[in-house]
Write a protein that binds this DNA or RNA. Sequence first.
DNA 1: CCCACATGAGACACCAATGTCTCATTCGAT
DNA 2: ATCGAATGAGACATTGGTGTCTCATGTGGG
Lengths: 182, 182
Amino acid sequence: MTVDREQVLRTAAALLTRRATATMDEVARSAGIGRATLHRHFAGRDALIKALEELGLKELETALDDARLDEGPADEALRRLIASVEPSAGLLAFLLTENQLFEGDVYDGWNRTDARISALFRRGQEEGVFRIDLSHAWLTDAFYGLISAGAWTVHDGRAAPKDFPYMIAELLLGGARRSVKQ
Amino acid sequence: MTVDREQVLRTAAALLTRRATATMDEVARSAGIGRATLHRHFAGRDALIKALEELGLKELETALDDARLDEGPADEALRRLIASVEPSAGLLAFLLTENQLFEGDVYDGWNRTDARISALFRRGQEEGVFRIDLSHAWLTDAFYGLISAGAWTVHDGRAAPKDFPYMIAELLLGGARRSVKQ
DNA sequence: CCCACATGAGACACCAATGTCTCATTCGAT
DNA sequence: ATCGAATGAGACATTGGTGTCTCATGTGGG
């Protein structure tokens, strides 16, 4: 009987990721509950988005924890991160565009995750694993961008989900150019 | 007296890129015209978005032409493309998210540009310049993703506009990993 | 100089979505 | 079996944005 808040959030995430303009009613229906019930659990659309943001943030932080970013070579840590972030990629892609739209009052929890990812790139640069002519700020943004792009590529069926980690890690680490001496 | 349609479109693009939910009234104000006048030139919001889409498409096609994608090594052609697409990056980033939101009825003009970019990557693969373990579909999506990410990085002040071509081309071509044998 | 035409401002109806409320129903714990 | 709590359905007012219209203004071309 009682609504599973987590379940509702995941369903809403799946729908909103596909269509960000979905109605509260559509969100409710897709979760198999009534609109009134949805309102009982989330005060309004803003509250729903914020809850989604907290969910995505929590998932990203869990992925960051699981990846053990400060262990081993930085490039291997980055691979672990990409792999563990994969299940959340769709939600993160949605939240990324959502945040870009609402400039200013962005949930500042993202600063923490940004800092951790940025720190990984900085460590890699200091240890000579990552190139230093690309700022860690740009590498961080590119990381998010490729995660989003990969999420859409998989979502639209242009790549299989299982290829997600490989195609992102390889492009982000090695680039598109074929290495001549290899 | 007469409104410069092109000018209005560019102003609208600049505003909507920053805040996609901007009102028709805000769009009009930012262009320095009245809402009624805006409606006289663009039947409605949909028409405005569509006009923006056509503008972005036109600019991208111009950039594709200017880059002469079928001349010289594919990686150099890609560099030319990134450089010539830079002025349109913000608009393209906006249209990209806009299109992802409205699934289905996307302006099919993008298929042409997708095909041209994809063809560049395929040519590069056939000529041994680009690696073949990453599909040209993914490379194309990644190209768009990095263009968008770069546009936001520049927009938010985390990189200078002049660095745009370098940081994107270098990451897309060479990746983040520091080449050991170099 | 004058007239035609585009514009700006504002009024207006309309619509879609939101948020709130009520009430009957149903589920689940006791 | 019973009672309380949560739900679903629907009604309702409200709101913000949209699209249309009118009218006064002013500018530019002839």
